[in-house]
Structure formats: structure tokens, C-alpha cells
Amino acid sequence: MNAVKPTFKWLYLLAIPPILLGIVAFFGWSWWSKETAPPQLDAQSSSTPGKTVQVQIPQGTASQQIGRQLETAGLIRSTQAWKLWTSWLSFNNKQGGFKSGVYRLSPTQSLPEIADQIWNGKVVQLDYTIPEGWSLQQMANYFESIGFFKAEDFLAATRDIPKDQFSWLPDNLPHLEGFLYPDTYKIASDSITPKLIVRQMLKEFERVALPVYQQAQSSTNFSLLEWVTLGSIVEKEAVIAEERPRIAGVFTARLKQGITLGSDPTVEYGLGIKQTQDQPLTYAQVKIPNPYNTYINQGLPPGPIASPGLGSLKAVLNPENTDYLYFVARYDGTHIFSRTLREHNAAIAAVRQQQSR
């Protein structure tokens, strides 16, 4: 076999597209310089070699803007290197594109490693926590405060009842109050939308709470909506877990005897206010008519006033068999329970006297 002459080898080399030659040369310098020199850190970044930096890439960010963001964060040395790398991806028709989301990156990673992570959407898993007893409005304010989305966008999503996916949801719900299960969740940072979070929380209610009701359905007179509604009232009234069955027992007894529930949290919910120790509900506020005012209206309100936890939901199904009909908060988490209105009024006076000291 005849050997190829050197002159022909040079001709083959000249046939390589200039952009590939430029990339090879540039990355040879880029990789070497990154290994031999410390990264330039942005003043706002706490990154140091060996530590990770959290970078958020919004939806629709151009690739060159991503490069500038990475350079500012001290993760790459040059936006020119990033530009050449993205050109190489385009030249080779690599499928996909850079994905939005939150990424945890390290200055010790090479530029191709960082690009690969963003190209393939290897985003950070974010946590969010919804405490028991929160209303939809509290959730909305929380999501806006942590930068997920606007409060109103979340509330709009809760008014879209997904009966097609969750056929067990009660009919004619105006919103999903009470059915978004309180818990700590993980979600990919590139897929945070109000709709997705609503579905995630409904699935958790379906997994955790719904089976509890279904197992007790034959032994309870409460519909699903009534169960969650009373559970939400117990959740808002009870502070100490041990008192939940007794509080549920008081409300169950009042319902059976046709006595109004007289629950402060229902009045607060209907008026959109929050009473405090220094500013309790006034008699005038308690007399304001609204569908959720259980001082005026007999029976349960139209729907839940918050998202109850499993403890309160179970208490409604297994209430304490009690002859107590009243209770008043001591403001230390406990309550004074009374059998008669006279005892109840005396308990209220005792609590007020103690608070005035």
C-alpha cells in the first residue's frame, strides 16, 4: 500500500471547516487556563473553588445571555468560549436546547460539563412547605414571597376545578379551599407553575386523606365536602393535638342539637380578617351577615376555611363523645371546655381577667 504524501495530509486539514479549527484551538486554551487559574468570582456570589453556585435561568433566556450570567457568577472564564461551544452545538444539529430553571453549578466544572447540565435540564429540586391550617390566600402570598409566581396567578389556578383528573372532587366547588393537602413538597425548578403545584397537592390529598374518608364512609353521615369543611374548622380552632377529638366532639354535639357552631375562624374567613390577642373579634363583627358566619348561620359553612391536616380530619371521623358544648381559648394553646352557657361565660370572664393583668 502506498503511503499518503505529507502535502495531501495538509490538504485534508485545510478541508476541515474553520469553525471547528477555531473551537479546537480556543477550547485547548480555555480548558488549560481554567485548570491553571482561579475563576473570577462576582462580588455578589459567595462561590469559591470547590463550592457550588445556584444560578437561575429564566424562561426564554438567550444562550449568549446565559454565557454572560455564568461568567459573572465566576463559573466560566470567557463568554467567547461559551459562544464557540454553542456554535458547535448548532453546527452539529444537537437536538434540544438550553433549559430554564435553577441549577447548582461548581467553578471546578469544565465549560462543556456546565453546558451539558443546562442543555439537558439537570435542574435543582426545590422545596416548598404548606403548614396545616393555611388558606388559599396564605398559600398564594407564600408562593409569591418565595418567587414562584404571583399570588393572583395561584388563586386563579385554584378556581379551575380539575374534575377530569380528580373525579372525587365535590361538584360545584367555587375553588379548591381545603383540598390542597398541607405538606412539604419537592418540585423541579424548571416546571414551577400554579397549575402544576395545584395538581401536586391534590394528588397528595388523594393519596393521604381520601382513603381515610373512603374507609369510614359507611359509618359517617358527613359528605366529603362536609368532612373537609368541619376538619378545617377543627384545624383552625385546635392548637394542641390532644384537644382535636374533644373540639370535634363539641362541634358534632352542637350540630346534632341544632346549635350554631359559633366558631371565630369561620367569621374571620368570611370577613377576610385575622383576630389577635390584642385585637379580638368584636360583637359588631360577629353580627355581620356572611355565608361563613357560624354565629348567625346554623350548620356548616358552604365550604372549608383552610387546609386541614390528617389529625383534624381523623378527629372529625372519631370525635370524643362529650357533653361539652362550649370552649374558649386561653391564648396558650389550650382551651377551657364548658357544658353550659353560664360556665362558658364565666370561663370567658376568667380569660379576659387574666389577660388584663
Rank of each mutant, 00 (worst) to 15 (best):
residue 7 T to N: 04
residue 10 W to A: 08
residue 10 W to R: 12
residue 16 I to H: 07
residue 21 L to M: 11
residue 22 G to V: 04
residue 23 I to S: 11
residue 24 V to C: 00
residue 26 F to S: 05
residue 27 F to S: 09
residue 47 S to L: 13
residue 51 K to C: 00
residue 52 T to E: 13
residue 54 Q to K: 11
residue 61 T to A: 13
residue 66 I to S: 04
residue 73 A to C: 04
residue 76 I to P: 08
residue 78 S to C: 02
residue 78 S to H: 09
residue 82 W to D: 05
residue 83 K to N: 11
residue 86 T to E: 01
residue 99 K to S: 01
residue 107 P to Y: 15
residue 108 T to P: 01
residue 110 S to A: 05
residue 126 L to W: 08
residue 126 L to C: 03
residue 130 I to W: 00
residue 141 N to I: 02
residue 159 R to W: 04
residue 161 I to H: 01
residue 168 W to C: 01
residue 169 L to Q: 03
residue 183 D to E: 15
residue 187 I to P: 03
residue 188 A to F: 05
residue 189 S to L: 06
residue 195 K to P: 00
residue 199 R to M: 06
residue 200 Q to N: 09
residue 200 Q to E: 05
residue 206 E to V: 02
residue 209 A to S: 13
residue 216 A to N: 14
residue 225 L to M: 06
residue 230 L to Q: 13
residue 231 G to D: 06
residue 232 S to Y: 00
residue 233 I to L: 15
residue 236 K to W: 13
residue 241 A to K: 04
residue 244 R to M: 12
residue 256 K to A: 13
residue 269 Y to Q: 02
residue 270 G to I: 12
residue 279 Q to G: 01
residue 284 A to P: 08
residue 284 A to W: 07
residue 295 Y to K: 00
residue 296 I to W: 03
residue 298 Q to E: 12
residue 302 P to M: 13
residue 312 S to Q: 03
residue 315 A to Y: 14
residue 321 N to M: 15
residue 323 D to G: 00
residue 323 D to N: 15
residue 337 F to V: 00
residue 341 L to W: 03
residue 344 H to Q: 12
residue 352 R to Y: 04
